[in-house]
Simulated scan of single mutants.
Amino acid sequence: MMSGFSRSWTVGLLATAALLTTTACGSGTADTSAGSEGGKPEVIAAFYPLQWLSEQIGASDTQVSVLTAPGVEPHDLELGIQQVTQLKNAALTVYIKGIQPAVDDAVDPETSFDAATAVQTIPAGEHEEEHAGEEHDHEVAYDPHIWLDPARLATVATKLGERLATADPAHAQGYKDRAAKTAATLGTLDQEFAKGLGACRTKTMVTAHEAFGYLADRYGLKQVGITLDPETEPSPTRLSEVGKLAKAEGVTTIFTESLVSPKVAEVLASQVGAKTAVLDPLESKPSGDYVSAMRDNLKTLQTALGCTS
């Protein structure tokens, strides 16, 4: 007959095995099981741009983990039990409501920072009526892609510095100083975009999906998305509408993305006599970092829109 101690020990092993199995079955989830190191507060970033920001501001005073593995569409993220538990135990979780419903459901309001609350948002895609009745990841009325405007991200940096200072008072000044430095870097990037996109042959950018609304809003461009989100196939009517607009406005480039199939964009480009180019929405880690990838985007836009700086 098994003793009470043996039964408890066995149940504990089985529970641990079940936890590991469930976690291993998650889709698109990065390994965040390391926990904090040396007593440092753990900061969990939902996906790459927020990871970059958290690392710039947290630096050696925090242990930063990211939920979304490189090369994975953030919208596809699923969480295992271990990740959900870690979110509950983290000093701070940095996310954007509306990008990843699994994260929206799992975060603790007391120990999380929704970056969208720090800035003025803009409405979601202009052709949402096409998706009425469909289930998709846009569960908020605003466009959640705020990180594609460096000026807005600079505001987020300042607020994140304040939140980290509150969570870890012993290193408060370091967080605030690094937040100010990061905001200045983003301010410089903002100035580069403003100058580089100030005089262009066309201001219309046709994109695979409507991810660049904040960039367009900031720099006086007009975004025309083939679809509202990367999970949805455009209707024939929508393709026809975008094609007519592209021809009328002299669009020479249709922008695709690194994590989304370029097929639809390529079909549209062939119909209007345009070429394609990759414009990175930075939802996953690029070959460099946020700043270098945004500068690459600027060069791509300048070439495609015929800009002179």
Rank of each mutant, 00 (worst) to 15 (best):
P101G: 11
T252M: 14
H131G: 13
E192K: 11
A90Q: 10
G288M: 04
M2I: 15
G39P: 04
V260A: 02
S292F: 08
A180T: 12
R7T: 09
R201G: 13
T207N: 07
P236Q: 09
E249F: 07
D296L: 15
G12L: 05
A157C: 07
Q302S: 00
A24F: 12
A183Y: 02
T207C: 07
Y95Q: 00
E233Q: 15
D114T: 07
A216P: 04
A179R: 06
L14S: 10
R178N: 02
A18N: 06
G174F: 06
S33K: 12
D105W: 03
I146Y: 05
A293T: 06
D76F: 06
A277T: 05
G273E: 02
R163W: 07
M205H: 01
E241G: 05
A106E: 10
Q100M: 01
T256N: 01
G225C: 07
W9C: 13
S309H: 13
E231P: 01
H75E: 05
K222E: 13
A106I: 00
A45W: 10
A199D: 14
A179Q: 01
V140C: 05
Q82K: 15
P230G: 09
L268R: 07
V140G: 08
E37V: 14
L228V: 13
D280H: 05
D217F: 10
V156E: 01
V156W: 03
P169H: 03
K181A: 15
V64G: 04
P49E: 04
A211Y: 00
A170V: 15
A304P: 04
D190K: 12
E210A: 15
A102N: 08
K285N: 03
A199W: 09
S60P: 01
D190E: 10
G174T: 10
V64C: 00
T117H: 12
S65Q: 07
V272S: 04
E241H: 05
Q56N: 12
A69T: 13
A179T: 03
Q271L: 06
K159S: 13
L298Q: 01
L87G: 10
L239D: 05
G71N: 02
P234R: 03
A157Q: 08
K159P: 10
T303P: 12
S309V: 09
L14H: 09
Y48Q: 00
L259I: 11
I96H: 11
Q191H: 12
G80S: 11
Q191F: 11
T10L: 14
E78I: 11
N297K: 03
